[in-house]
């Protein structure tokens, strides 16, 4: 996965809904992000929290240990906006590369 994309996905997901590590992995897989390992997502959550882009709280669970729920902070939303803008630029550039030029335009 491209550097920064996972962070953008996490910020976007946790801005929409508060969630915890494993549930985030499941949600991303359900959304079609394949080949995603927990070992990649958990450290990314920790780093985003360390950067102040996520905040967390412990919620007791009836089925096991207390879960750590994350939510995107206002600073995280700003970072998300920046990352999404970069992503749109990249996607537009990718769309342009390798396309066959319109002969009418070349005349």
């Amino acid at each position: 996965m491209l550097k920064g994309v996972l962070g953008m996905l996490l910020l976007r997901l946790l801005d929409a809904e508060e969630s915890y590590g494993y549930a985030v992995v499941v949600r991303l897989r359900e959304a079609g992000v394949l080949g995603l390992a927990e070992g990649t997502v958990y450290p990314a959550l920790t780093r985003l929290e360390g950067a102040g882009h996520l905040e967390s709280r412990l919620v007791a669970s009836t089925s096991g240990p207390a879960r750590k729920y994350y939510r995107t902070t206002p600073a995280g939303r700003e970072a998300l906006a920046t990352r999404e803008a970069s992503w749109r630029l990249l996607r537009a550039a990718v769309d342009r590369v390798g396309t066959v030029p319109d002969p009418e335009v070349l005349r």
Binding site: G21, G39, G64
Partner: peptide, 26 residues
């Protein structure tokens, strides 16, 4: 960090089994 990982592993193990849950962490 241990507590958080333990909670996530617990859920993953219930979902896919302990061996796979551990393998997915690398």
């Amino acid at each position: 960090l241990r507590h958080e990982l333990r909670a996530n592993l617990h859920d993953a193990a219930h979902d896919v089994g302990a061996a796979v849950a551990v393998a997915n962490l690398g």
